[in-house]
Design a binder for these strands. Structure first.
Length: 428
RNA sequence: GGAGAGGUGGCAGAGCGGUUUAAUGCACCGGUCUUGAAAACCGGCGUCCCUUUACGGGGACCGUGAGUUCGAAUCUCACCCUCUCCGCCA
């Protein structure tokens, strides 16, 4: 959510900024709506003030034993008037709020111009793609004899699910454990175990609702709950409705959770393999910081995610997403793309965003700024550190051998009982 | 699932239909005193919205939503959450 004061006083700049995303702010509609809201609110406040004064007068008159007939009659009139005024106010306010909730975040000045993913700006590369003396396979082909079982998953759950067996299941677990340990022991994060099912309010706080409901799995029940699409939702909401003292900042959280996405808009994309699933695991990093520190935090968070790939010795590059490709709630985003030899290209494995105050305003997450003495919105950041399923894809493709086996990356061996190689088998 | 208790400002905690629409304490900020600090004393101190150049003024908020009433933190109903006991259970 944008700052409504800024929207009113600095409308031209807000409009220009949003235009960089390709978002057209209907200035005239906003002004009309805002003026009407103001007028209706002033009217309702005035009626309510009179009603309050009248009610108080009734009390005083009764105390003195005076006749109250006229006052009571006036009170009845005012109550009717107030009901009308409040209904009008609720309608306008609702319209205004809905409109405000639908606006994306403002972009940071450093975000490059552009329309779509082809305009994203490469910032740096790390590692050199390995050269093979055989044609590297894609993970889905390579994995069939290693324990990646899409067929069985299809029978149980349908498309875009996977069953992992033996070495694959263990490798998957090892990756998550390794990442978690790195962030907790070396990067100083607090480990969080959080709910995988959340309320609509939590999702509104982080920005998935109301606009992106079609991407979520909703649960049937008396009240609507949702499966989390990312740990960002429960973990960022840890500070909702709180005023955090400055001494506690910055907060750095890490959580390993499954993520559930309906991928409603991705029909036909990446239908083969583990790249795009309805259910996948992710180790998520969240920073809650003072506004003045959020851009330093973004660099730090990104570096923490990169460290995972460095230790796994996976080649990757870092992109600054362009204005047209950046997410709804983010002011600036770096994507990490890992090299996949089977596909012969870099694929997204992490996305690190500074949401500035966008989420904090929606969820009333504040800190008391000692300079002003006032509660002010915090800045929130999140990033994958990293996606477990895609990391596994990257390990399989980069560490594959000509005989169909896969070498276990050194840093993962302690998590796999010292195992050095995953061997193919014909046993299902 | 059954029975009961309860959700009030950063925290604790009173108020249970009006005539101060939130007492009081702690914490916090400023001042007096002091070499300095503490204590004591004095004053200030919630969040959000609207309005005003400013001083100021108005409104909302006592878990959430609806209702009763001229008037609701206070009464009624529903829901959410917390705690205690019982049952079930990993």
């Amino acid at each position: 959510m944008l700052d409504s004061k800024q929207l009113r006083t600095d409308t031209e700049n807000v409009m220009r900024n949003l235009a960089r995303r390709g978002f057209v702010l209907d200035l005239a509609a906003f002004r009309t709506l805002d003026d009407r809201r103001k007028q209706v609110q002033i009217g309702a406040d005035r009626v309510r003030a009179e009603r309050n004064a009248n009610a108080k007068a009734v009390g005083m008159a009764k105390g003195k034993g005076e006749n109250t007939t006229a006052l009571l009659k006036r009170g009845e009139e005012l109550t009717v008037q107030l009901a009308d005024a409040e209904a009008a106010l609720n309608a306008v306010q609702g319209e205004s709020d809905a409109w405000l909730m639908g606006l994306p975040n403002l972009l940071h000045d450093s975000v490059p111009d552009g329309r779509d993913e082809t305009d994203n700006l490469e910032i740096r590369r790390h590692g050199t793609p390995r050269s093979f003396d055989f044609t590297p396979q894609e993970h889905a082909d390579l994995g069939t004899r290693l324990g990646l079982d899409f067929e069985t998953a299809g029978r149980i759950s349908g498309a875009r699910f996977v069953v992992l067996r033996d070495g694959m299941a263990r490798l998957h677990r090892a990756l998550a454990q390794f990442m978690l340990d790195l962030h907790v022991s070396e990067h100083g994060y607090q480990e969080i175990y959080a709910p995988y099912i959340v309320s609509g309010d939590a999702l509104t706080g982080t920005g998935q609702l109301p606009k992106f409901e079609q991407d979520l799995f909703a649960l049937k029940g008396d009240r609507t709950l949702y499966l989390i699409p990312t740990a960002e939702v429960p973990v960022t909401n840890l500070v909702r409705d709180q005023i955090t003292t400055p001494e506690r900042l910055p907060l750095r959280y890490v959580a390993h959770t499954p993520c559930f996405r309906s991928e409603a808009g991705a029909a036909g994309k990446d239908t083969r393999g583990m790249i795009r699933q309805h259910q996948f695991d992710k180790v998520e990093l969240v920073h809650i910081v003072k506004p003045s520190e959020s851009y330093a935090a973004l660099e730090q968070l990104t570096a923490h995610a990169e460290e995972v790939l460095k230790r796994l010795k996976l080649p990757y590059r870092v992109l600054a997403l362009c204005a047209g490709d950046i997410g709804f709630g983010s002011a600036k985003t770096y994507d990490l793309e890992v090299w996949l030899p089977g596909q012969g290209r870099y694929r997204e494995i992490s996305s690190c965003s500074n949401c500035e105050a966008f989420q904090a305003r929606r969820m009333q997450a504040r800190w008391r700024n000692p300079e002003t003495g006032k509660p002010e919105p915090l800045h929130t950041l999140n990033g994958s550190g990293v996606a477990v399923g895609r990391a596994m894809v990257a390990v399989l493709e980069n560490y594959q051998n000509g005989d169909g086996s896969v070498t276990v990356p050194e840093v993962l061996r302690p998590y796999m009982g010292g195992l050095e190689k995953l061997l193919p088998t014909d046993k299902a």
